[in-house]
Amino acid sequence: MISNFFASVGAFVLGMVEAFFQALSIAGRTFRGVFHPKERARGEVLHQMYQIGNRSLLFVTVTLGALGMVLVFQVCLQINKITGDQSQVGPEFIRGMVHAFVPILTAMMLATRVGAGIAAEIGSMTVTEQVDALRMTGVDPVDYLIVPRFLASMIMTLVLGIYATVIVVLAGALMAHTAFDVNYNVFFVFEKITWGDLGVGLTKLVVHGGAIPIVSGYCGLSTTGGSEGVGTATTRAVINSSLTVIILDFVISAIGLMTVQSGT
């Protein structure tokens, strides 16, 4: 029982390490594909952008809107207990959203929505041998399938993240006003946001947006074993891209804290 547990942890770690290096090689090939475009794929990037946006707009609106309300509620509740001074809620909330919460929560939602979609799509192409057929005609699957999704996801994560910030702040303001009588003038104060905060937030969005298609594309391309394989690949894509987002978010936050945000 116990040794079984350790065996499964060990297998997990080994699998993670192996997957990490393979995903890293795919990331390398993707970057090369971006800077040395072999495929004329501008239309494909636009198509993928539309797919990502279309799939996620409503989803992001609903989830981030609800989260904005919840977070403001929790913060106000706590402040009421301690100081009762609600004047700082708006500015600090907006600032926290910009550099911390919106990037990670948007990216987690997109990892679920977009990552699963990419893995299912590329995974079913792998098991039906379409990827082999592409390679037969000399097409690199990374160039042809992952690079357009990589570019599209980076752009759309940035766009959706900015959009989500607006939604979250509006929802938060609404909640603060209705439940805690915080005036809109007091809430909408943007001076607290430094360039460092903005830089950290935008960097996170771009990096997360790029990581999701690479991790899920890797999961899709390494699909084996028919129909069950596609399900497994989708599962792995959701979990691996979410975990990647969390770890990257941590790393960027730490770097941001020690550099651009240290003085504030």
Binding site: M125, V127, T128, E129, Q130, D132, A133, L134, R135, M136, T137, G138, V139
Partner: peptide, 30 residues
């Protein structure tokens, strides 16, 4: 691979292309 043509077990037709585009794909690449 250009000297080879392959019919795959699962046909491997590209489901994002129409029949005609599927057939023309290898020729257009070559």
């Amino acid at each position: 691979r250009r000297k080879m043509g392959m019919l795959f077990q699962n046909n491997a037709l590209f489901d994002f292309l129409r029949v005609l585009e599927n057939v023309a794909f290898p020729l257009a690449r070559q």
